Simulated scan of single mutants.
Amino acid sequence: MEFISPLQPATLIKRYKRFLADVRLPNGEITTIHCANTGAMTGCATPGDTVWYSTSSSSTRKYPFSWELTQTADNHWIGINTLRANHVVEELLDQQGVPSLRNFTHLQREVAFGDEKSRIDFVLSNKNEEKCYLEVKSVTLLENGKGYFPDTVTVRGQKHLRELTSIVKQGHRAVLFFAVLHTGIDQVSVARHLDPVYAQLLSEAIAIGVEVIVYRSQITRYQLLLVDPIPFVE
Rank of each mutant, 00 (worst) to 15 (best):
D49I: 01
G79S: 10
G184E: 03
D115G: 11
Q158F: 00
L224R: 00
D115I: 14
T32G: 12
H106G: 14
L92Q: 09
E129N: 12
W67C: 01
K137N: 07
N86H: 10
I30W: 01
T60K: 11
K131C: 09
G79W: 08
R84S: 11
N86F: 04
I78G: 01
A199G: 03
H172E: 09
I185R: 02
P99V: 14
L7K: 00
G43L: 04
Q71W: 10
G145N: 10
L7W: 02
Y198A: 05
E211Q: 07
P99M: 06
R192G: 07
R173S: 08
R15D: 11
G39E: 12
W67G: 01
Q158D: 09
G157I: 05
P47K: 01
V168N: 04
R102M: 05
D151E: 14
E91H: 13
T165R: 14
D115E: 15
E204N: 11
T183P: 04
K62Q: 12
N75D: 13
H87G: 00
L124P: 08
T140N: 10
L161T: 00
V139S: 04
N128I: 04
Y222K: 15
D22I: 00
I208Y: 03
L202R: 07
W67V: 07
A179D: 09
E234V: 03
T105H: 15
Q8N: 10
N27W: 06
D94F: 00
A179H: 06
V188A: 02
S189Q: 08
E91S: 10
M1H: 11
V227R: 10
T46C: 10
L83C: 12
V136T: 02
V155T: 15
L202S: 11
A85E: 13
K14A: 11
V214C: 12
K62C: 11
T165M: 10
T38E: 14
S118Y: 03
P26W: 09
D115V: 14
R84W: 15
D94A: 07
R119K: 15
Y215D: 06
A112C: 07
R102Y: 08
T38Y: 14
P6M: 03
V212C: 05
R119W: 06
L124V: 03
